[in-house]
Design a protein around this nucleic acid. Structure first.
Lengths: 333, 333
DNA sequence: CTGTTAGCGCATTCAT
DNA sequence: ATGAATGCGCTAACAG
């Protein structure tokens, strides 16, 4: 089928040099005379030569390939995260192999097996919830990996992300500082995401302490946000603010409220989580928590590559996320 | 660093068989006695053995890896597209290596070189606009590739996508059929996307024929849509409808119009392009063109794998996209 | 600075 | 149904 690409020997023959020298040039070794290097480069160009990656990988037992398994890429936080990973890896000549698990532990395990079998050297996972066999698999083979979107100090595995519980608590405190006492919290399915669970737990710490919380679990989508809003509106007395554990839900809330003829923040305040691209340009501009998804991608990738090259352990990292005050929360204090 | 994973020889030793037999079992060859197969499988399990992908690739000159280079994954049409590719590849044991070009031809070329050098067997590109060197590179090495998001029959390269010009024309015809004669068209930077260009050209075919068109080129983002709306509003007489060449722009339009106190579709109609997840749940629900992004991903992946396995040429495919009438376009006819 | 050589781990003839 | 031997293309010691 494929025309067999030229091998290192062809270049050696063409230049009258040995394959070792060609190899040196292709790997940027220093101990090659400039003239020879030049000659080799030209010949490679002429012969359209490119080192065979499989042979190289076999010889060095390095593939320079890192795998990421994410639950979805449809939500742009993940998209940004992936873009960050890809950018960092690319800068150092690494490649990204991607798999999507749809939040299913079994699918994740299966993907991991496949990717391992394709030569991935390290893995980037999301969240803390994984098939135990997965972790065993990695441990057993000494495959480096890191968990992201969470920060769980003390554990034995490196985590690079945010303190979800704390952020939720802080968001609620912010709303409280604006005078809100009765708050509805919208979030996605807890079963699908330990991040969601952590946020909810963080929020629950405020329960009672003068704050009245009502939780609404719904689908993690605009449709879900809208449905949840309908529920909220059907309730007895309206909350003065709505905290959404994702901007996607907040968008659904916007639409639902608009449909109901309620104005934000005049009638009700809305706060999000993520700081998606459109948040700034929404009407009204959405007050939300800025999650540094891209930075998270850059950070894991950097740490993983460092580990791969130096053997330094992958250290955990807590990323800062700050509240961005825009127009969707009214001070009723 | 890494504990050296067991090799085929370890399994051979453990079972007292030859490496050839182990290889046969690992590849599901038929000519192995069930008992032996069983024995091998157990030993592999026990030794935690996994065939070395590099060695396998070197021996077979197949990596079962397909590369996709997309301009971005931030827009969910692309995210869906990628998800489709990944799903189809995964089902057949292929892996996806992903690179993001940010719409830059040079970056795309560079990524392609890298991915080729990592063993990608085939490439999935977006649109028709690429560095000539890229195509030469593929041609020169006999690397299969396909262009997506466009459908350009007659060309020498396989294209799998939609007829962008025709879709734009059809969208405009739809608006015309609803009585709209004065229409503003919002679109992203033409320089960055030949799809945008094609759509605009398709739209221009309606110029004059009783339809009055005004084009607004802006950033491909919610912010861009909102800015463009401000421009539209500053113009003399208002158009009765706005056609956005992306739902993302339509969302910006919604916000911009809402800000201006204009109601959709009461004061002005809005139509999108993409049918993103939220379109159905927007308020009002967005009338748009449903682009089958996921199907497109499934289709390219399937065709590429078929080519890789059988040598059949990759055939082009025109995907259907239909208009979804929802509430954002009013019949003023 | 350059050449020689020995594997890397596996798939694959060719025998048996 | 199984085994022995060869080579895939390259890197890394070692030799000079």
């Amino acid at each position: 089928m494929q025309k067999p690409p030229g091998s290192i020997r062809d270049v050696a023959r063409e230049t009258g040099l040995s394959i070792a020298t060609i190899s040196r040039v292709m790997n940027g070794a220093s101990n090659v005379s400039p003239k020879t290097r030049q000659r080799v480069l030209e010949a490679s160009e002429r012969l359209n030569y490119l080192p065979n990656p499989a042979a190289r990988a076999l010889s060095t037992s390095r593939s320079k390939t890192v795998a990421a398994i994410v639950p979805t890429i449809a939500h742009s936080v993940f998209a940004k995260f992936i873009a960050g990973i890809e950018e960092a890896l690319g800068r150092q000549g690494y490649s990204l192999v991607l798999a999507i698990s749809d939040g299913d532990r079994g699918a994740e395990l299966k993907s991991a097996r496949k990717l391992l079998g394709m030569g991935a050297e390290a893995f980037i996972l999301s969240g803390a919830d994984h098939d135990p066999d997965l972790i065993d698999l990695f441990r057993g083979r000494g495959v480096p990996f890191a968990l992201t979107s969470i920060w769980a100090p003390g554990g034995t595995v490196p985590t690079i992300g945010y303190d979800n519980a704390m952020l939720a608590e802080r968001a609620l405190n912010y709303l409280a500082s604006m005078g809100h006492r009765r708050i509805a919290v919208l979030h996605g399915p807890r079963a699908e995401s330990d991040r969601t669970m952590a946020r909810r737990q963080g929020a629950e710490r405020l329960q009672g302490r003068g704050i009245d919380l009502e939780f609404h679990e719904t689908g993690l989508s605009v449709a879900g946000g809208r449905r949840a809003i309908n529920q909220v509106l059907r309730g007895g007395s309206l909350p003065s603010a709505i905290l959404c554990f994702s901007d996607v839900l907040a968008l659904g809330a916007y639409f639902g409220l608009s449909r109901a003829g309620l104005s934000v923040p005049g009638d009700i305040s809305v706060m999000g989580f993520d700081n998606l691209d459109w948040a700034r340009d929404a009407h009204p501009p959405l007050t939300t928590i800025d999650l540094p998804a891209r930075d998270m991608g850059l950070a894991v990738a950097a740490r993983i590559m460092d580990h791969l090259e130096t053997g330094n352990p992958i250290s955990s990292l807590r990323l800062e996320a700050r509240i961005i005050s825009r127009g969707s929360v009214r001070d009723i204090g």
